[in-house]
């Protein structure tokens, strides 16, 4: 198999290229193997360099990587950098494959927790409230923050290459603490967002005689707690989601029920 060559062929600029090429990860996204083709292609040039004199192993390694993979796009260069350092160090491709299989899932978990469940809602909350005031800073700030997140790919490729698996343990350990704190921030903002951006106002008034009416919203719900209905509604959706009700069904259902209640004059 791979000759035990210790000579370093991967340069810093190769790692920069890798980080750039890693954007191709989802280019051929499909349900059977998800990111496999883009994942392999983006490592291709570096692998070609490592196995310049060994086309047989190159073919095997490329083919290995075409197996199913689904991981986090921004953190991907870390995994790829790590794999390249192993391939370059003459590690058995079978071992690298096993390491890859054991890592891409946890990496996806960390990435989704940090980016999709924390950074995105926080930035969405802050920037959307700016946008809602007609402030162009909304989109601009959002863009800048995610651009910085994009730039992380470059150091990540180098960290993966240089520090290997040791960094992952550290990352995972710190991620727990950071993502716990981030969840606190995210959940606090979510509370604020529910109060600010979910609107549900009941129009029903009840005639109680003597020309007096009770407005269900202002005289009843608002007296108990303003925004109680948006809060309750969000939790209704939350429980339906936990019951595995399909999102699209929920959305279409909300639209239909809104129109129905509007017809009845309740909402």
């Amino acid at each position: 198999m791979a000759s035990k060559k210790r000579k370093r062929v991967i340069t810093d600029s190769d790692l920069t290229d890798l980080a750039l090429l890693s954007v191709l990860n989802q280019a051929c996204f499909n349900y059977e193997r998800m990111q496999s083709i883009g994942f392999t292609a983006s490592m291709g040039p570096a692998l070609k360099k490592i196995y310049k004199n060994n086309p047989k192993v190159l073919a095997k390694v490329l083919n290995d990587n075409l197996e199913f993979i689904n991981t986090h796009n921004t953190l991907l260069p870390y995994l790829q950098g790590l794999m390249l350092s192993l391939y370059e160090g003459g590690e058995d491709p079978e071992t690298v494959k096993k390491i890859k299989i054991s890592l891409f899932g946890p990496l996806a978990g960390i990435g989704d927790a940090l980016f999709w469940f924390t950074l995105l809602p926080i930035m969405a909350g802050i920037c959307a409230s700016l946008s809602s005031q007609g402030n162009v800073l909304g989109p601009i700030v959002f863009f800048l923050v995610f651009f910085v997140a994009f730039l992380l790919r470059f150091p990540l490729a180098k960290i993966g290459y240089k520090t290997g698996t040791a960094a992952l343990d550290k990352l995972q350990e710190n991620t727990k603490r950071v993502s716990n704190a981030a969840s606190v921030l995210g959940v606090t903002i979510l509370g604020g967002l529910i109060a600010t951006y979910v609107t549900l106002t009941v129009k029903t008034t009840i005639d109680i005689g003597h020309d007096a009416t009770v407005n269900l919203q202002t005289d009843f719900f608002d007296k108990i707690l303003p925004n109680i209905l948006p809060f309750a509604f969000t939790f209704l959706i939350y429980f339906l989601l936990r019951k595995k009700v399909n999102t699209t069904v929920l959305i279409v259902g909300i639209i239909i029920i809104s129109i129905l209640f509007s017809f009845l004059g309740i909402l």
Binding site: F117, P121, L200, P230, L250, I255, S262, F263
Partner: peptide, 23 residues
């Protein structure tokens, strides 16, 4: 009006999905 009401409620779906993963 029904569509307007729905527009005010739809953000709840996004928030609920986030709650599902973070809460």
């Amino acid at each position: 009006n029904g569509f307007q009401v729905a527009g005010g409620l739809l953000p709840a779906v996004g928030f609920a999905m986030l709650l599902r993963v973070t809460l």
